[in-house]
Structures are given as structure tokens and as C-alpha cells.
């Protein structure tokens, strides 16, 4: 539920009144009595929304986390699809085989989220790969490293927002595959960097990232603005 959709009816056309109130604290406030909560629950109407042009709203609750993952998988799948379509110069047969595997994994992840989310799924994102030189091994592998490390950090950082044990396990099933990708890509760039201190801290823990930091890092590659306000 996008609570902001509700504000005109609740606050008599003073959206600025709630604009400064964080969504969570607003929910806490709205939940002050059962009656108000019921009103909030039943008062939501799709047609009250005025969508921001180009904005993709991930939604709320577990669906927001799944849509967040779906957005990142869309980005990765689109990237590797291009990598295989226009292979960098000097690519080896082994690299073609394993990068094709990675493309196929990301497509499987993307299609899984699309199917699992059904009508709750966000639309297709518009990607921007203008900064990538697909003919250059260096450019492609460094971008791949960025995406894979970011994907791992994103899943790890978003786990705490998931309330369903089943969805959490599903995220776990995917993130370890992303970590396998990340380690492989890093070793292609420089053997032995599969888990170096730019991604693993002194406790031996992956440095996870919260959604705001992830989306900021992904923003140069995505034309849409992503509203992840539920994941804060």
C-alpha cells in the first residue's frame, strides 16, 4: 500500500503536512487506533495515484524486496545479453561459455521474479549502457564486477526487509549464485581477488549495502527513477 496515495482524503488536501513525515512513522501514527487503520486499509484506491513520469515504485512489504531484486536482475540480464551479442575482442572459448551461463542465470532470475510477482511486478526498466565499451574486455569485465558485487551486497542488505521465511530462502538461493559469479569475474580480472578486502571486511563478512546505496550505484545504468521508499 502506498500510504501517500491516501493522504489527500485523510489530510484534506495538505500533502505537505505528511510529506515530511517518514512513511514508517506515519504508519505508526495511522495505526494509532484500529478504526483509523481500517480506514487506511480500505481507503486505498488505485486511481488516487498521480504517477511521477518515468518513476518505478517498488511497492511495499515483501513485494518491494522482490521488485527490488527483479529490477537488479533486469539490469544484469540486459547487460550480459549485450555482452554475448557483441563479444569483446580477445574473448576466449571458456569465457564465452561461462559468460553465457551467467547470462542464462540472470535471465532465469529475471523471469522467475516476473512470474512470481505476477500483477505486482514492476514494468521493464530502460537501461543505459552508453558508458560501457562492449568491445573492450576491461570495460565489460569491470562493469560485470560492479554489477555482481552490487547484486550480492544488495541481496544481503535487503534480507532484513523480508518477512516471509520462504521468500528469504529464495533470496538466499539466488545470492550465493551471484557470489559465485562475482568471484569468477573478479578472478578473470585478477586471479585471487575473488573475496578481497574491497568486498569482505576484517570479520570475514561481505560488506552488504542498503537499498539506497545500491540504487545510487545502479542509477547511472538505469534511466528510470526507482522509488524504494518502503526499503528504508
Amino acid at each position: 500500500m502506498n500510504i501517500m496515495k491516501n493522504t489527500p482524503s485523510l489530510f484534506g488536501g495538505h500533502p505537505e503536512l505528511v510529506k515530511s513525515v517518514h512513511r514508517r512513522s506515519f504508519l505508526k501514527w495511522a495505526g494509532g487506533t484500529a478504526a483509523v487503520t481500517t480506514l487506511v486499509l480500505t481507503g486505498c484506491k488505485e486511481d488516487e495515484t498521480t504517477p511521477v513520469v518515468g518513476e518505478v515504485n517498488l511497492g511495499t512489504g515483501d513485494f518491494a524486496v522482490l521488485n527490488y531484486a527483479y529490477a537488479l536482475e533486469q539490469l544484469e540480464a540486459a547487460f550480459y545479453t549485450r555482452v554475448i551479442e557483441s563479444q569483446f575482442s580477445g574473448i576466449t572459448a571458456d569465457e564465452i561459455a561461462l559468460l553465457t551461463d551467467i547470462r542464462d542465470h540472470e535471465v532465469a532470475h529475471r523471469e522467475f521474479f516476473k512470474a512470481a510477482l505476477g500483477s505486482n511486478a514492476i514494468g521493464g526498466l530502460d537501461v543505459d549502457f552508453s558508458s560501457i565499451n562492449f568491445g573492450s574486455r576491461e570495460s565489460v569485465l569491470n562493469t560485470a564486477k560492479t554489477f555482481e558485487d552490487l547484486g550480492v551486497a544488495a541481496y544481503n542488505g535487503a534480507g532484513r526487509f523480508i518477512t516471509s521465511p520462504d521468500y528469504l530462502t529464495l533470496a538466499g538461493k539466488i545470492v550465493s549464485v551471484e557470489a559465485r559469479h562475482a568471484a569468477y569475474i573478479r578472478d578473470l580480472l585478477s586471479n585471487g581477488t575473488f573475496a578481497d578486502n574491497t568486498v569482505v571486511d576484517s570479520n570475514g563478512l561481505e560488506m552488504s549495502k542498503d537499498p539506497a546505496a545500491v540504487l545510487q550505484a545502479a542509477a547511472p545504468f538505469i534511466k528510470n527513477t526507482i522509488n524504494a521508499s518502503a526499503l528504508a
Partner: peptide
Amino acid sequence: AGNLVKQNAVLTAALNIHSVEARHAS
């Protein structure tokens, strides 16, 4: 993971170890 779904701090730490093990495996 499912056993830690309501233990956010422990869950995040466990996830952050989990992916490092996957990097090792790779």
C-alpha cells in the same frame, strides 16, 4: 536463513558470511 527471519542483525551477519562462502566455493 528462515530461522533468523525476525533476527535482523544476526540474519544480516549470517547472509554476509553465506556469500563469502559462496565466493570461496567459486
